[in-house]
Nucleic acid binder design. Structure first.
Length: 632
RNA sequence: GCCGAUGUAGCUCAGCGGUGGAGCGGCUGAUUCGUAAUCAGCAGGUCAAGGGUUCGAAUCCCUUCAUCGGCUCCA
């Protein structure tokens, strides 16, 4: 085969559409990412990749991971290499080492990496046979690499990348030399199981990121700081919204008055919106006989998430991890007619699930939480419309809380492990196709998540994107033909015969805890007007303005706004600062000037002084505020 | 649960073998002030819990609990 060309000789400078050559990290040849010095054997479409593109970033970060591995091998020759991919905003590399890395080790490794970058080692691709690859890595004692080679698909040709003394098994591509990596930082070290399997060895994973220039790296580090600033655990304490108390137990949430207020506001909105859409609100108990959970299948399929039974006069009871069996029992409390369907029963249901201690995280992963749950019982011919209705509601809710972007996943069974799920293939296929039809009807793009289904049915799971572009677990819509079967649910059809209803399990917020946690981070604690526990802070300049300040506060309260007076004996600046830190949307400064003419000096959160206004005019400002509340 | 780190006043943190410190917050007093911190005084801690080493432990060791960063798992 003749080599027609390599990209080394290319001179992209001649073409203004091509990026500056120094910034090119790799190329795409016929759509496949390609090393710049890898031969091209045929006519091809050619595209240059820079760091600006997603593929380019991946190449850049992956190359940095190799430099990390090389540095680790230099400093710790006994370390065994596992894998080192690029991730969303950087890279990691897993190592098997006798003693875990310390933060001080990271600094040493970083120093060595700088040296490798300084050496500007040429990065060379080479394709070798499977036997050669096994001999090469086997000879180095790289047992993880050997396993990877053995697991390569038959047709795959192993490729290796060399830079100086370092060689790694890798599909590539990579930047042309180590000197291309300009700015990088190792961020953290953590344990990670080999191939994500908790029964296999725990490796040491080093995370890092890199950029073509120092200022971009700096920006990235600032984004990490910004995320820390928005951390709902921190804001929850600073804004006095909620707490989790060691004395009570981990994963159990205490809603303080301000957090409770926001939660209640959301719940009120939730209930009103559900009633409007034909839902009825129900309440059910927190415990039930073990026998019920056996019928539902939870005892067999969900046991590892449930707390141990408690003895009540010789009968075993379980704390509920889900609400569905209760709604099913209610369904069975009467004979249902086809005319009754669909029935949509919503409940803000408190459920308790056992979560392993290491996974608990603020409000986002707790042991007791309130699902904004609902179950729709419908006829098979109504199923698609009902799914569409839930999708609409979910979209409406996300919009109401300012989430503009989302990702949709169709969660299906793990094809390798169907024993984890109840029900026949037929039933699962029917449920899946109902969800797919609804998504297609709406023209919504989605990815398929194998193994992401619930034990009783497939689902549409929606991930919300917050103000920083981070993804959060949001609504879920699950189609279930199984529980109706297990509980022998029926309705009387038009034909005077008994039929089996279909169930939809769904949440549109997820859980109050997780949703509030998400919302706190999304808004950075600065809730829109309608959710703010305190909407207006009235700030008198001196004691003699107290009377007028009280009048203003009362007038606002009478107009239906949540106003609070800061009557403390402090200077205006102090109270402004306090109100800003409390993230109150509006502050009203009242002094001699205002008291004289029934004015208020308006200051808007994050914006500053808006100047004096008549009190009535300010009330109009409030009622016109776009954050006054979702249209409903 | 696993790997690593951490746990000192309500919060943020210093102290790291010789009988507990700061700032903020809180309380009290003074000040009456115009858009992100007025001044002063006072109170507040079995240094996460339990055990050990030591003449002596917040400090060293062990166990437990909790938290944090991840892994696995999830609303």
């Amino acid at each position: 085969m003749d080599v027609l060309n390599t990209l080394e000789g290319a001179s992209p400078k001649k073409d203004k559409h091509k990026p500056e050559i120094a910034k090119v990290v790799a190329a795409k040849v016929n759509g496949v990412t390609w090393d710049l010095d890898r031969p091209i054997y045929d006519d091809a479409t050619l595209e240059f990749l820079t760091f600006e593109s997603d593929d380019g970033k991946r190449v850049y970060w992956h190359s940095t991971a190799h430099i990390l591995a090389q540095a680790v091998k230099r400093l710790y020759p006994d370390a065994k290499l596992a894998i080192g991919p690029a991730i969303d905003d950087g890279f990691y590399y897993d190592f098997d080492v006798k003693t875990p890395f310390s933060p001080a080790d990271l600094e040493k490794i970083e120093e060595e990496m700088k040296r490798i970058v300084g050496e500007d080692l040429h990065i060379e691709r080479q394709e070798i046979s499977r036997e050669e690859a096994l001999a090469l890595f086997g000879g180095k004692g790289e047992t993880y690499k050997v396993e990877l080679i053995q697991d390569l698909p038959k047709e795959a040709v192993p490729s290796i990348y060399k830079q100086g003394e370092f060689v790694d098994l890798c599909a590539g591509p990579h930047v042309p030399s180590t000197g291309a990596i300009k700015a990088f930082k190792l961020l953290s070290v953590a344990g990670a199981y080999w191939r994500g399997d908790e029964n296999r060895p725990m490796l040491q994973r080093i995370y890092g990121t890199s950029y073509p220039d120092a200022s971009s790296l700096e920006e990235h580090l600032k984004r990490i700081e910004e995320a820390k600033r928005r951390d709902h655990r921190r804001l929850g304490r600073e804004l006095d919204l909620f707490s989790i108390q060691e004395e009570a137990g981990p994963g159990l949430v205490f809603w303080h008055p301000k957090g409770g207020f926001i939660r209640q506001k959301i719940e009120d909105f939730w209930r009103a919106e559900h009633r409007k859409r034909g839902y009825e609100i129900v309440y059910t108990p927190h415990i039930a006989r073990l026998e019920l959970w056996k019928i539902s299948g939870h005892w067999d399929w969900y046991k590892e998430n449930m707390y141990s039974p408690m003895d009540v006069e010789g009968t075993e009871y379980l704390l509920k991890p889900m609400n569905c069996p209760f709604h099913i029992l209610m369904y069975k409390s009467a004979t249902r007619s086809y005319r009754d369907l669909p029935m949509r029963w919503g409940e803000l249901g408190n459920v308790y699930r056992y979560e392993r201690s290491g996974v608990l995280h603020g409000l986002l992963r707790v042991r007791g939480f309130t699902q904004d749950d609902a179950h729709i019982f419908c006829r098979p011919d109504q199923l698609e419309d009902e799914i569409l209705g839930v999708i609409d509601l979910a979209m409406f809710m996300m919009k109401a809380f300012g989430f503009k972007d989302y990702e949709i996943m169709l969660s299906v069974r793990d094809p390798q492990n169907k024993a984890k799920y109840i029900g026949s293939d037929d039933i699962w296929n029917a449920a899946e196709s109902a969800l797919v039809r609804a998504l297609n009807y709406k023209g919504l793009p989605y990815v398929v998540g194998e193994g992401e289904a619930k034990f009783y049915g497939p689902a549409i799971d929606i991930t919300l994107k917050d103000a920083l572009g981070r993804g959060w677990q949001g609504p879920t819509i699950q189609v279930d033909f199984n529980l109706a079967e297990r509980f022998d649910l029926t309705y009387m059809g038009e034909d005077n015969r008994l039929h089996r209803p279909v169930m939809i399990h769904r949440t549109v917020l997820g859980s109050m805890e997780r949703f509030l946690g998400t919302l706190i981070e999304h808004y950075a604690g600065a809730f829109p007007l309608w959710l703010s526990p305190v909407q207006v802070k009235v700030i008198p300049v001196a004691d003699r303005h107290l009377d007028y300040a009280i009048q203003v506060t009362e007038k606002l309260k009478d107009s239906g706004y949540r106003a609070e007076l800061d009557s403390r004996n402090e200077k205006v600046g102090f109270k402004i600062r306090a109100a800003e830190l409390e993230k109150v949307p509006y502050m009203l400064v009242v002094g001699d000037r205002e008291a004289k003419d029934s004015l208020v000096s308006v200051r808007k959160r994050h914006v500053g002084d808006l100047g004096p206004k008549a009190l009535d005019e300010f009330i109009r400002v409030l009622s016109d505020d776009p954050e006054k509340g979702p249209a409903s």
